[in-house]
Design a protein around this nucleic acid. Structure first.
Lengths: 236, 236
DNA sequence: TTGACAAACTGAACGGTGTTAACCTAGGCT
DNA sequence: AGCCTAGGTTAACACCGTTCAGTTTGTCAA
């Protein structure tokens, strides 16, 4: 009876092919600009075939987001190995911004588009992933914040970990999303993205009571602009 | 020859009626959910009539945004009278977040949707408004930053005013936009909006070298943790 | 081998969208 | 009076997401 297994495998493969194709098209052209017919043509099926795997276009998009959250969590994991608590937080922020601007259309779908969580159509697999630090990027951030608090690296109490994590998130999200939406606005005299990202991380970490002077001058890959902060921190 | 004047006035009135009606509908139902036919019906004209005033739906939306930028700048002006430089920056941030969450659909259209600046279809009136602190909210923020730097209230050089302004903007925009997009996400254990806003402003201003201790002691929320956070500290 | 059956898939259509072309029509000007 | 223009409408186009009725396809029991 290997037949039904083969069929299920083929069905799952096609489903994933739909997801990957749709993701590519969405990333290239944007959500609204890509129709079901275009996706269907790309996978060489009729538009109706997609509806055998997803309730509607929004469900397809939702699945793409779900997988992308996993990917973000994956690259986030690279930062969690850093032992210095402040450096870990900084690295997580850098990774986040890098992910956002590298996949602006993904990012817009994931964090700049309201999605009503129906509570109904999320599978058990979804619930299992939630709260898992290896899969959930926010949990990794939260854990890094708790670690920093426990180590005394930032000046906050354990009960404020959620608030601190949300502030850090909002900071990098603000930098990333303004970059994505406004980077070619002629009214604003933008500083470079890397400078804005570093300034945000410097300012927030310093404001949280982190001791930035302890950093090695060349530690992160963030070019040269970190030096200016170290210089300033001494002035204070 | 008052006839042509009357006609122009009537035309301008209808144009503004279209803008106001569309704004109301967009704010209530969202951009995509409101069609040209719905707008037309609300103003009791045929859908085509709108196209006598606006090239397309996007141009109508663009005009709404233009006027809303003016309104944001207007409420922003209320903050610019504060003499204490740090308090002024904080007040501007509070006003910004308040505006954003009070008009989430406006805000999404204004700051969370990419709009290609064609350089072609912006009138002379547009160019005049740009850079005018009374009309341009960003300019007001920039001026407040320059003021704070000049007064020695924050620890930055005049040349970094743009960078500082953009960091402050990104901070409050991050708080506001995450609130708008994610506030009902069940995965995240959100602190209250006011706490997140205050924390962001506290952290960023402190990180910029502002002396927050001069404020009245009730200021920051970093005294006692709220019950909800403590209760849910075990996560999920 | 044959027939039933279920699953996979499709073509055509429905109601909706933004937008446009063709037409009408009321009012002012010569 | 007759033309002419600006403002407005009706009907249509091309496209969208989605659905329904039908067709193919492959498997299994008889």
């Amino acid at each position: 009876m290997g037949v039904i297994e083969r069929r299920e495998r083929e069905k799952a493969e096609l489903r994933q092919r739909i997801v990957d194709t749709a993701r590519r098209l969405f990333a290239e052209l944007g959500y609204d600009a890509v129709g079901m017919r275009a996706i269907a043509e790309a996978i060489e099926y009729s538009p109706t075939a997609i509806y055998l795997h997803f309730k509607d276009k929004r469900a397809l998009f939702h699945e793409i987001c779900r997988q992308d959250f996993g990917r973000l969590a994956e690259v986030t994991r690279e930062g969690t190995s850093i032992v210095d608590p402040v450096e870990r937080l900084r690295r997580l922020g850098e990774i986040y911004v890098k992910f956002a601007v590298a996949h602006p259309n993904h990012y817009r779908l994931m964090f700049m588009t309201p999605i009503q969580h129906d509570e109904s159509d999320l599978s058990d697999e979804d619930r299992k992933r939630a709260g898992d630090p290896t899969c959930d990027g926010y949990a990794a951030l939260l854990e890094a914040v708790r670690y920093a608090i426990a180590e005394g690296a930032i000046d906050r109490k354990p009960a404020e970990a959620q608030l601190v994590a949300q502030t850090l998130w909002a900071g990098v999200h603000g930098v990333a999303s303004l970059e994505i939406t406004m980077h070619n606005d002629p009214w604003i005299d933008w500083s470079s993205l890397s400078r804005r990202r570093d300034e945000m991380l410097d300012v927030v970490l310093l404001g949280l009571g982190a001791n930035l002077e302890a950093r090695k001058p060349v530690s992160t890959g963030s070019t040269v602009s970190t030096g200016s902060i170290a210089k300033k921190a001494g002035r204070r």
